[in-house]
């Protein structure tokens, strides 16, 4: 089994085929294509996206539906092609794709989630994109705080 050095965990072995591929990388990380999704039952609903190319790179993500249960995808036909999805309808989250918001920790210690550009992973072919929405429905720095209601 291939082995992977990780940022937040020990080095670990993983099943070949469990990697996900961002053919175009992520904004700001265009050269990083291969990631390993890691979950930890003690840290649900967090999903860690560990770079297989840079051990020091790991994104912390949460499912968008945990932040906003009414979240609606708006993928373009091009995105859906890259994910091998039926381009005639938006994919169903949890059934066709995983949809994750990247979480950052701001300078004012308020964690923020990017709902404007969610990571979308195809459950059909393991490919992923982080497309930026063309509308103004969701924000790039949605604050996550203890006092915040889930879908404000």
């Amino acid at each position: 089994m291939p082995q992977c050095e990780t940022k937040y965990f020990e080095s670990l072995n993983y099943e070949p085929g469990s990697e996900i591929e961002f053919p175009a990388g992520l904004p700001g990380f265009e050269n990083c294509r291969w990631f390993l999704p890691l979950d930890d039952p003690a840290r649900q609903p967090v999903l860690f996206l560990q770079s297989l190319e840079q051990p020091g790179l790991c994104f912390i993500t949460v499912p968008v539906l945990a932040i906003d249960p009414a979240y609606q995808l708006a993928l373009t036909a091009e995105d859906m092609g890259a994910l091998a999805l039926d381009a005639t309808r938006q994919p169903v989250i949890g059934q066709d794709v995983l949809c994750l918001a990247v979480v950052a920790f701001g300078e004012d210690d308020v964690p923020t989630a990017n709902l404007l550009a969610p990571v979308v992973i195809s459950l059909k072919n393991g490919k992923a994109v982080q497309p930026i929405r063309d509308d103004v429905v969701y924000g790039c720095r949605h604050p996550l705080s203890l006092e915040q209601s889930p879908c404000s």
Binding site: L26, P27, G28, F29, F59, I60, V102, V103, A104, F105, G106, T112, N114, L116, A117, Q130, I132, C140, R141
Partner: peptide, 8 residues
């Protein structure tokens, strides 16, 4: 989004 990813 690039800046948010870098921060993340």
């Amino acid at each position: 989004t690039r800046e948010h990813n870098r921060s993340a």
